[in-house]
Computed example of a mutant assay.
Amino acid sequence: MDRVVFYYGTASVYVTTLVCIVVLMCFDCPWRRAWLRIVDAFIASAKHMLF
């Protein structure tokens, strides 16, 4: 496998994933609420571990 093809493939998957996440965050759906709950729990856990 050519390195250039590998890098372009990896970059395209990364960009596509980011675009999908941004699009999902624009709508008020259960996926958005679930993701924000996970992020909030992670932030609370990190604060608890630091302080």
Rank of each mutant, 00 (worst) to 15 (best):
M1Q: 07
R3F: 15
V4G: 04
V5R: 15
V5H: 13
Y7R: 14
Y7N: 08
Y8C: 08
G9P: 05
T10N: 13
A11S: 13
S12T: 10
S12F: 06
V13A: 07
V13F: 00
V15M: 11
V15E: 08
V15N: 04
T16R: 03
T16A: 10
T17F: 01
L18C: 01
L18N: 08
L18Y: 01
L18R: 09
I21T: 02
V22P: 01
V23D: 08
V23K: 12
V23A: 12
L24I: 10
L24M: 11
C26W: 05
F27W: 14
F27E: 14
D28Q: 11
D28A: 07
D28R: 15
C29P: 04
C29W: 05
C29A: 05
P30Y: 05
W31I: 13
R32N: 03
R33E: 00
R33F: 02
A34D: 03
W35M: 13
L36C: 08
R37W: 02
I38Q: 06
I38H: 02
V39P: 01
V39C: 01
V39E: 01
D40M: 09
D40P: 01
A41Y: 03
F42C: 12
F42E: 13
I43W: 08
A44C: 11
A46T: 14
A46K: 14
K47N: 08
K47A: 06
H48Q: 15
H48S: 15
M49N: 06
L50T: 11
